[in-house]
Design a protein around this nucleic acid. Structure first.
Lengths: 135, 135
DNA sequence: CAGCATCCTTTAAGATACTG
DNA sequence: CAGTATCTTAAAGGATGCTG
């Protein structure tokens, strides 16, 4: 019942800051943490704090634009903390807040699950594809 | 370490059947279950089996195209079971497999978390926005 | 280094019409 | 009813150049 609320709510994509969207906030946060880069950022930061470009390298194949956007969204949601040191050259450290750590743990749970069950998924795909090609 | 593998892998979106993608399969499954409609389908099916259009109504605002695509992807991954009865008019029931139930529970955990912590997220956003507008 | 602004391409998603 | 096929739109994502 409580969960199905999220299900029957209004759609809407994840734009920058998600302003002007018609979507229940609950589901909006869910989209933020399950977004492609959001997932990876949260999991990575669960390990330790990261600097911007350090995080970028760690994730790999993420454009700076998308990483910036993702970090801003998660920061606004209170999930990560941005610590910009007033030095030259600039140094910005990102870390999880307490709230963010909770979210990240949930996300990691999901990631660990996919890892554990990967073999079964691959098996299922083979079966599915075999059925398709022979019928 | 195990989880960070997923983090440093290759990117790639979720196309139909995800053929020809250069992405570690592990992360691919993760994207399937965390996809916008994938999340909602899994959570909804955790409740009970659904027929196609019944599921569409339950989720709301999902086009039949996207629902079809999502269901096919999840079926191929072995997470949901499709039971097409040979009757006229057609009747197709979708349900979770054992594997899918595990995934769905993880996803529901995340959804429940966002629900519980919604107030804190909204609070954080206010603070963030206030800082931005006054600085 | 850590971004922001702009332009451009690729994908996801929606609308519509049609079929077994 | 439960889709498929096709077309169009909207959004995500990437490349480049610039700034404190």
């Amino acid at each position: 019942m409580a969960v199905s609320d999220v299900v029957s709510s209004v759609t809407g994509p994840t734009g920058k800051y998600d302003t002007g969207e018609q979507m229940c906030p609950h589901r909006m946060v869910l989209e933020h943490v399950t977004s492609r880069w959001g997932v990876l950022v949260l999991i990575e930061l669960l390990e330790r704090p990261y600097r911007f470009s350090e995080l970028r390298r760690a994730i790999g194949r993420v454009s700076e634009k998308m990483l910036t956007q993702t970090l801003q969204t998660l920061e606004r949601d209170g999930l990560i903390h941005r610590d910009a040191k007033p030095v030259i050259p600039p140094r910005v450290d990102y870390s999880l807040t307490d709230l963010g750590r909770e979210a990240a743990q949930q996300v990691r749970g999901l990631a660990l699950w996919t890892e554990e069950r990967m073999a079964e998924v691959l098996k299922a795909r083979e079966v599915y594809d075999a059925r398709r090609s022979t019928s």
